[in-house]
Computed example of a mutant assay.
Amino acid sequence: MFTRTESFRDFIRLFPVVSIIIAIHVVLYLFTILPMFPNSWFFENLSGVNLYIMEGEYWRLITPTFMHGSFSHMLFNSFSLVLFGPALERMLGHGRFLFIYLVSGVIANVATLLLEPLTYTHVGSSGAIFGLFGYYIAIIMFRKHMLSKQNAQIIITLSVVSLIMTFLQPNINITAHLFGLLGGFLLGAIPYFNKKDLANSIQVTANWAGSHRRNLSHQSPVKLIIWGAIMIIAILGFLTQR
């Protein structure tokens, strides 16, 4: 599922949205380094600068998602998209995948606007990519049949590792990572979290707390521990950043 065996031509044909996004990454990066282009113009006008957004330059809520500060930054995010974008584009369809990606990026950038100083400047597609992780996690929790157990474990492991690395690496927009992940998860969870799901969740919780019945899924405590750890790490990291 996350192993790419297609030829370059087949990849573009099968996954046009992922291909176009990566092409935009590369083109915009080249615009910022090649001498024949006004390099500074792109950063000055497309990066996320909270002060300018507050002054009405609202396009900066989306354009930073396609900008990157260095070759390694662009390469890592594009490589992550190559690995984890195609499977989701195939499951959701081209239009819905693009919607999830862009909205996750916007949620991450809006959170950055609201929670970071007015002088804060940022670029990168990490918030949108974390949104894809969040959407995958929603699938794992609400539509288990769409992913094999092995692939689900890969996603959960990488999500936890990526979240931990968010607080260990310098110059990371922690706010964008956290809220991109949350935004993607909510986009995936909301359509399925109806009254029946809520009632079932309450019943399962009551059964576990009251009698520890054996017919409760053995995965539930594991999920509880994993998501408890994620929430604790996220909260502690965010408070430390403040």
Rank of each mutant, 00 (worst) to 15 (best):
I62N: 07
I232N: 08
D10N: 12
I230T: 11
A229S: 14
V222L: 09
H73M: 08
M91D: 12
L198N: 12
K223F: 15
V82P: 01
I235L: 13
K223M: 13
N215H: 11
F142M: 11
L92E: 12
H94V: 05
S78E: 02
N45Y: 05
F99N: 05
L178W: 00
I155M: 07
N77H: 08
G131W: 02
A128V: 00
F31M: 12
S47F: 09
L102S: 03
S104P: 10
M165T: 10
P221M: 00
A111Y: 00
L30M: 12
G184M: 04
F97E: 03
L168K: 07
G188P: 02
M67H: 04
R213E: 11
I24V: 12
I33R: 14
F66K: 02
H25W: 10
T63I: 07
H177R: 03
R213D: 05
L114N: 15
F167W: 09
S125P: 08
R213S: 15
P117V: 14
E6P: 09
R96C: 11
T3D: 14
S159E: 08
G183I: 01
R214N: 15
I21F: 02
I156F: 03
I24T: 08
S70M: 07
H218K: 14
I225V: 15
N109A: 05
Q169W: 11
G237F: 04
L102K: 04
S80K: 05
F71I: 07
S217H: 14
L147Y: 04
R4I: 07
S47I: 06
F84T: 00
Y101W: 11
L178A: 00
L239R: 11
H218L: 14
Y192E: 14
Q150V: 10
K223Y: 15
S159H: 06
I164W: 14
V110G: 04
R90C: 05
T119F: 11
I20V: 15
A209W: 04
I100N: 01
M141P: 02
L113N: 05
F42Y: 13
P38K: 13
I164Y: 13
H122A: 10
F11R: 05
D10G: 05
V82R: 02
F37C: 07
I232E: 06
F97C: 08
A176I: 05
R96A: 12
A108Q: 04
L114M: 15
S159L: 09
V49C: 04
A138S: 15
I174G: 01
E89I: 04
E89V: 06
W41T: 11
N45M: 08
P64R: 07
Y192C: 08
F97A: 06
S19V: 10
I202A: 07
Y135D: 00
I225F: 14
R13M: 06
I20Q: 13
N173Y: 00
L34R: 10
L224R: 03
L168H: 05
A23T: 13
I62F: 14
L224N: 07
R4N: 13
V103G: 04
F71S: 03
F11I: 11
I154V: 11
L181I: 05
F42P: 02
H68K: 05
V110I: 13
R9E: 08
F11T: 08
F193S: 03
E116C: 11
A199V: 11
L115Y: 13
Q241W: 06
A108P: 03
I137W: 00
S148F: 04
L224M: 13
Y101N: 02
